[in-house]
Computed example of a mutant assay.
Amino acid sequence: MNNFTTFFVSGWHHIVDINAYDHLLFVMTLCAAFKLKEWKQILVIITAFTVGHSITLVISSLGYIPDNPKIIDLLIPFTIMITAISNIRNYGKEGVFSNKNVKYVIALIFGLIHGLAFASNFKVMMFNDNIIKPLFAFNLGIEVGQLFIVAIFTLMLFAYSKILKGEHLKWNIFVSGAGFGIAATIFIGALS
């Protein structure tokens, strides 16, 4: 495999690896509040998350972010819990946190935090001073992996909404509630 493929596959595995379920959980929780007809907003919010993730990798690769795994292990589940609470609390309401643009900014900020989880590994993977090509390949792998997860999630939402005739509010509560519960368990585990 060439370097581009290596970094692409690493990005892909960073997202779709079942052992990296915190990222899978975040992506699903992030998408829970969106309906099928809002698929374009889902793509934008996922890309905003990837952009934030990319920025952290660049800053970290340049040595500007110190590593502190204990704090990172607390922040990542915390972002999932905040997203889940926001999904349930603001569902169907008008206001600042219901605004799509605000959600995109929050996804970008949370992407910055989630990028910290892989930043030290990414620095180790760097073979030379040129980070542009590896960073692009890695983040392309992340984006394709996230879109793959979103496609599966959207198919599940389609089956629930169209075939089972389920209400989107219940879907949002279930997915967000599950996201919160699992993230809370991870958070408590990181405290010990």
Rank of each mutant, 00 (worst) to 15 (best):
I76C: 01
F118H: 04
I132P: 00
I131T: 05
D67V: 14
P77F: 02
I132Y: 03
I109W: 09
F97N: 13
N87E: 01
G111M: 01
F110E: 05
L75D: 03
I142C: 07
M126G: 13
L108Q: 13
P134S: 11
V144E: 13
F127P: 12
K133Y: 08
I72S: 00
G92K: 07
V124D: 08
N101V: 03
I132D: 01
K133S: 11
H114N: 00
T83A: 09
V150T: 08
I71Q: 11
G111E: 01
L108D: 09
I109R: 04
D129V: 02
F122M: 12
N68Y: 09
V105Q: 07
I113G: 07
G92S: 03
V102C: 00
L135D: 00
F97T: 03
I109Y: 14
I149F: 06
L62E: 11
I113K: 06
K133L: 06
N101M: 04
E143R: 10
N101Y: 14
I131F: 01
F122E: 13
D67Y: 14
L75E: 10
L112T: 02
I76F: 03
A107C: 04
K103M: 02
A137H: 08
I82L: 06
F110N: 06
P77K: 03
E94Q: 09
G141P: 12
F136E: 09
I113D: 02
L135M: 08
I131E: 02
I76A: 04
L147N: 15
V105T: 04
L147E: 14
E94T: 14
M126R: 12
T79C: 11
I131M: 08
N68S: 11
A119V: 12
G141I: 08
N90H: 11
L108G: 15
V102D: 07
E143L: 13
H114A: 00
M125D: 14
I142W: 11
Y91Q: 06
L116R: 00
G92M: 01
G92R: 02
F138K: 12
P69F: 15
L147Y: 13
P69M: 09
I131Y: 03
P134C: 04
M126I: 14
P66C: 01
I80M: 00
P134N: 07
R89E: 12
L74C: 07
A84F: 10
G63Q: 04
V124N: 14
S86I: 06
M126A: 12
